[in-house]
Design a protein around this nucleic acid. Structure first.
Lengths: 148, 148
DNA sequence: CGTACTCCTTCAAGTAACTTTAGGTTCAAG
DNA sequence: CTTGAACCTAAAGTTACTTGAAGGAGTACG
């Protein structure tokens, strides 16, 4: 039935997936994508399988999975067993990492917030001559800004 | 008065600041720290000024400022003007970045959460034979797992 | 004074995941 | 057939360090 096999250039594939052309070549280089067949002139050609595979990779990367994790997920997606439990474990581990990073960033947000607030309160009128933020930062972990 | 100038080896400075010795050498190499005076045998020596400077750098890095931002902050800390407004602007810009990253991560957390939940619901009994997560991921941005 | 041990030295390469640059080739349109 | 966009390779750049190899310096003990 499907006599029409769509063929893409690397640029068309890039547009279709949102992955840049150098990145596509890079993925081929590191083995995430199979070596693409070439035209007589040496340019890469892709088909719908490649489109699916690269879309999958892009999704995984957007989820924040590392390249090595994507490799595992790709293998799972191709093997006949399609082990969902293993997939879930990888996702769960990643979720744990994301949550830890979230906590770190929330703490950082609060610290920066109070830092900026203190700057504004103490220096609302312009550059302060007696700003001691630097002394504070070189001395303690509290941070500080603009006199006292 | 202060005839006792404390002198540190690179290892002592590392312990005092929580920055590793290779990192201290790296900071010297990229100009964040001035070239350290050497002993007759060629080993680096540090004093309290270096301790203060490196502590400041460490604080900034813990705040998530990039090396180039730290460079600016260091310059500000040394110049006589100590422009607090400029300092605050740098911190504010950084805070904006942190908040954007937080939003991205929060979204990612929700997506991963629902991903894992769907895996668990559909595959509680063990590996699923009909897991279609991979089809889903190669086709749409929604993600999905384990048969419908 | 010798030896053992830790700490120090330089230089080079490795890490993650691409991006950028340089210099040249192919393809499709007019 | 010419033009210009899109393609090619290979290598270096990015961030902020970390790791490794091979060897020298400093100190405590006997």
């Amino acid at each position: 039935m499907n006599l029409h096999v769509r063929v893409f250039t690397i640029g068309a594939l890039a547009k279709a997936t949102g992955v840049t052309t150098p990145t596509i070549r890079y993925y081929e280089e590191i083995g995430l994508l199979p070596p693409a067949p070439r035209t007589a002139g040496g340019q890469r050609t892709y088909d719908d399988d490649d489109l699916g595979r690269l879309t999958f990779i892009k999704q995984c990367r957007d989820f924040g999975f590392g390249i090595d994790q994507v490799r595992v997920l790709l293998d799972l997606s191709i093997s006949s067993r399609r082990d969902c439990v293993e997939t879930r474990d990888i996702a769960q581990a990643h979720l744990d990492e994301v949550r830890q990073k979230l906590n770190e960033l929330r703490l950082l947000e609060r610290r920066l917030e109070s830092f900026v607030t203190r700057c504004n309160v103490a220096c609302a009128g312009g550059p302060g001559q007696d700003c001691v933020i630097f002394k504070d930062m070189a001395a303690s972990a509290k941070g500080g800004c603009c006199g006292q």
